[in-house]
Nucleic acid binder design. Structure first.
Lengths: 208, 208, 208, 208
DNA sequence: CGTTAATCGAGACGGTACGTCAGGTCTTCAC
DNA sequence: GTGAAGACCTGACGTACCGTCTCGATTAACG
């Protein structure tokens, strides 16, 4: 989405705010029914009760549209306060897996990532809308664990940031790979074993 | 690829064996230049010096073709015998990341995974050609580590298999996520930190 | 060609009128160069500087397009007022033969007739666009001859209509057969002999 | 069809004579079911229980094959000896129309004529296999009429030949045009009127 | 309160690729 | 060498979406 040069224009008919929401919703509905590759912008426009022109005026193409439509899904994620770091990890893993299991997410996410490998701007959009946005969960989890005394406070801010990135890639990566590549379900048992293994790594690793 | 029911073969001109190889090679070349979404089967056929019909006679579509073309890439992976489990992990992670960094792999792999979310047959093909095939690395690594006494021998075969799956998803997932989703490079430093963290999990986790 | 229900026209971009003319002209040019069987709609579209879809939006296929393109050719025909029925017939026969000798006509006309044998709608289109349209020549010729007193006025309108049809089939049939089936030229001599023979039939036949 | 250098070869397996007949019969059957444009040589080969190769070894292509298949149909035509020239003409017209009404004839004949407009060799084949072959009917009819005294004997052989050609084009042309272009049935009434009109031309025209 | 200008819907436009089909040729093995 | 089988290359098919364009018809804010 784009706001047309911040301190915006005045004259002329303003853009319909409702259209944006309708389009994103229609995009998700189309992802559910058709998946990424069979989704067409013409179809999305029709579902949203909007002309194709209107859609193209707001998004550059399929990729950008789907990033925005999918990104909203991950905002539902919340870190459960379960009292222990292990339980927190387990909880967030299960939540994440539940979202990834929804067809509008699984079908769109990987496709957009695939496209992003050849499109710097899209890569940046994915990073901003999805990756960086959900790192909040790792940060929050670490803060809580440190408050509880489960994790030491890292002094070097650069090392701390690197650890956050590493943990994020490990958690998100494992869940995504399990769900989409291996195509096996993330069961409670799997989540528990994963959390346990990660915890050992976290607590016993001297910050190199 | 398909062998036409093993002991079939009776009549008619036999299929050119050279064509198969040329097509897969052309597919990878096209992936490098164009990426998944701009790759067309017509173009692949032309590059391979083959008619479109020949291509369609052997593969059902773009998805199936690309799975086969990409799967071959991962066969290069070898577990380095570096003397310690940590070094083995680090080594394979760097190798894996190097392959994933090649445009023919990154562009194709995620796209195929995305398509597989809506296509059971394709999912099975990915599992057979890529996932299960590369689990050999985890199995071999574990065997070596057990021989060295770095890892205990698990008695329960079911639990052992679950661990293999878990480790595979964690390693592959982390590298894929780092490379393609976070879009950050897998440096030697990152690989060392990751290996260290995983190792802690492996050696300190009581097989629940 | 179709006018979309005359008083329709409400919304959307209107169809380009220029495109229609360009397409028909390109069709005739392609008929000259390639003939019916080698003519492709893709090529016609390219010649006309138009997208294939534009062409298919207006005509259902090659047959319909060629009927329209060829029909226009016969509109050039004019009944010469030469003072006698014999000369009138002779003149129109030579004109007709001249048109049939042009490659865009000979190549397209028979092919369309061949297709029409299996396609009722096409048959109707040929009848409307070509046959009925050119019967005007027979009607006009008869009127003049009656004015000159060369032919009696038939009283029974049904019999008169049947005679018109018969004459039309005899004239057009003979010229077409001579030109396309026998593949011999229609010379002035042939036209004179034909006109003479027909005239005898016309003037001496008691209207059964 | 071609006979391989008259005083033919010896060595190798001889061509199956049955195949020729089967192919021509299959061609006619395919014309009935599919018409010219949808008829495919692959399909004909299958119907005839013959390989495509066999078919191509004997005919150069679709056009040549269909000419041969259709030409046989017209060999059925026979001049009825009805006692008067008018009745003879009427009879042959009705016979000819009956053949032209059969789908294997109407669909194939015009298509072949259309192709022949751009193919000298094909034109020659049509002339030899169909046109010249059926002129026998006109010749025979004239001879009988002369024997009966209905027609004078023409002295100039060139003029006589020209008249035969003219009559042939007039008869065949009118019937073909009526049947295929105007797409109206040739009724007994039409045939009678046509014969009458032609007769007047024949008997009253001084051989210019 | 009537301009004014960007919005909206609709749908035609020039393109590109699709997956299929037929035409003819070539290669294999059996006769 | 003929024959059936079927793979091969070529090229056209008719369709589907793409992203752009041209319409006439709404809207608001501005003047």
């Amino acid at each position: 989405m784009q706001s047309r040069s911040s301190a915006a224009r005045a004259t002329g008919r303003p853009r319909s705010a409702a259209a944006d929401a309708a389009i994103l919703e229609a995009t998700r509905a189309a992802l559910v029914e058709l998946g990424w590759s069979r989704l067409t912008l013409g179809d999305v426009a029709m579902r949203a009760g909007v002309a194709k022109t209107t859609l193209y005026r707001r998004w550059a193409g399929k990729n950008e549209l789907v990033v925005d439509a999918v990104a909203e899904l991950f905002d539902e994620l919340e870190l459960p306060d379960s009292g222990s770091l292990a339980a927190d990890i387990e909880g967030v893993v299960l939540q994440f897996a539940a979202i990834l299991d929804r067809p509008e997410a699984k079908s769109g996410l990987m496709a957009v990532v695939a496209e992003a490998t050849r499109d710097e701007a899209l890569r940046e959009r994915v990073r901003a809308s999805i990756v960086d946005r959900q790192k909040r969960l790792v940060l929050e989890g670490r803060a809580r664990a440190q408050a509880r005394g489960e994790l030491p406070v890292e002094d070097d801010p650069a090392a701390a940031a690197a650890t956050v990135d590493l943990i994020f890639d490990m958690v998100a990566g494992a869940v995504v790979h399990r769900t989409l590549v291996s195509a096996e379900p993330v069961t409670e048992d799997w989540a528990r074993r994963f959390a346990q293994m990660l915890l050992q790594g976290l607590t016993n690793t001297s910050p190199a």
